[in-house]
Design a protein around this nucleic acid. Sequence first.
DNA 1: GTATTAGGAATGAACATTCATTCATAATAT
DNA 2: ATATTATGAATGAATGTTCATTCCTAATAC
Lengths: 191, 191
Amino acid sequence: MTKQVKREDIIRAAMDLIAAQGFHGAPMSMIAEKAGVGVGTIYRYFENRDILIKAVYQEIEERLVTFLSRDYPYDQPVRNCFFHVAKGLVTYFVQNPMEFKYSEQFHYSPFGEAHRRNRIFKTAGQPDIFLELYERGLAQQVIKTLPPTVFFNLAFAPIAWSLRDHILEMIRMDDALAQVLAASCWDSVKK
Amino acid sequence: MTKQVKREDIIRAAMDLIAAQGFHGAPMSMIAEKAGVGVGTIYRYFENRDILIKAVYQEIEERLVTFLSRDYPYDQPVRNCFFHVAKGLVTYFVQNPMEFKYSEQFHYSPFGEAHRRNRIFKTAGQPDIFLELYERGLAQQVIKTLPPTVFFNLAFAPIAWSLRDHILEMIRMDDALAQVLAASCWDSVKK
DNA sequence: GTATTAGGAATGAACATTCATTCATAATAT
DNA sequence: ATATTATGAATGAATGTTCATTCCTAATAC
């Protein structure tokens, strides 16, 4: 087993356990067992628990941004780009519910608070898809004049909450619902 | 000091500590100290930690519902009622940031998941303000045809996220912003 | 004087982290 | 080609700490 694979096993195990049980319900010993490695081994790959937790989140963020960037309709109107992102979010997280639950745990924790201050979804190097959307929308006067955070909240908070409801099996998120949801969010930010 | 007062002191101390530091950062000994009572005393009022945590949340929910029910414009159009609730939420939580942060912590924890299944903000006995809004909106055909949860998410998720941003001092929530926010949320659910 | 309430030291369970030891593989010598 | 040695990855028992809960004693009420 290569080094990289083992690292990924640990990340996967931590993600699944924390997503399912919360930070509490996932002691290092359990993560080690699920990853099929010794406890000590984890510390060869991650300095300590906090660093592991942050690494898992970074992994998720990177995968999401990569997914959303695929076929991004850069040269099309803001509205189309918004739908691409909104529906991409739904598609990605419906397919990867553990990633979603982990992100939520992370987000609403002391880690997340620190992280959010820097800026959500801003991955070093890559252009910020979300910010680009906001700035172009403002410049072209197709969205309301709002602080970027508020725009972001109107545009994506209902999607996040609905994804949560879907994952908890309180609603069923299909293409039709995703479409209505995205359209409604657009209604709330469009001029 | 009466029994009731002591109970409230404990609830307040738990709320403030957990809101500020998370569930982790608020051991019983710290709650006791902040409340000005012995650790053992807490166990005279609350069977165990989990029960205390749930009691704090119930307290918050009750206060909120009471606040929102005051001057509720029952006989006015759905739209007005929606604005009453939306702005009431903002007013209440801007004035009571610890209540907001605690609710968030609670909501995104194993406790919250269990709780949400029953139904958010449904306080036994009182009519459910939120559900009433949805049902009347549908009946009068002033809102889109959506599952109740999705309606709820569109209507209130952006407000919750923005309250969070305000409390973390990333934006400033004043009356003007609350108004725009409420109006935008309404835009997303209105027919 | 008795009953009830408060207090906080003591207890034991859970957990993150460490570190001495094992073991597989690679490097080197013969 | 085979034997010997070196390297460092992997391991999990041991350690020290934190914390919820208990329970005995003190204070207070009646």
